[in-house]
């Protein structure tokens, strides 16, 4: 059971979190992109074998959505941080 370091609560068992999928930003103007780019956003996945940037939600805890970088083979989590530019627990600004 991997430990996930919630930017707000610190390291917690992964069972407390909900996986939000690989980082896949929504097009700024959906109507402006062509069908290929829209299909890529909706359905296609990098599904990387290696360090993947992904979303997590601290469902049983502080209800923070945050980003993590995890190696998808070993499940080793390299770092976790919030998306928005506001200070997290250690005071370091976590900028996306």
């Amino acid at each position: 059971m991997i430990l996930l370091n919630c930017p707000n609560c610190g390291p917690r068992n992964v069972q407390e979190f909900r996986f939000g999928g690989e980082h896949n930003p929504r097009p700024a103007a959906p109507l402006a992109v062509d069908n290929a780019e829209w299909t890529d956003y909706l359905f296609l996945k990098a599904n990387k074998l290696g360090v993947q940037k992904e979303w997590w939600y601290h469902r049983a805890g502080c209800r923070l959505w945050f980003l993590a970088e995890r190696h998808t083979q070993s499940n080793q989590v390299l770092k976790t941080y919030c998306w928005t530019a506001r200070p997290n627990r250690e005071g370091e600004t976590c900028v996306e």
Partner: peptide
């Protein structure tokens, strides 16, 4: 399981999460 890894080699992106 490794479909995405192999497809990447051919430059094809798939709607698959492993």
């Amino acid at each position: 399981g490794w479909a995405g890894v192999i497809a990447d080699m051919a430059g094809v992106k798939l709607p698959i999460a492993t």
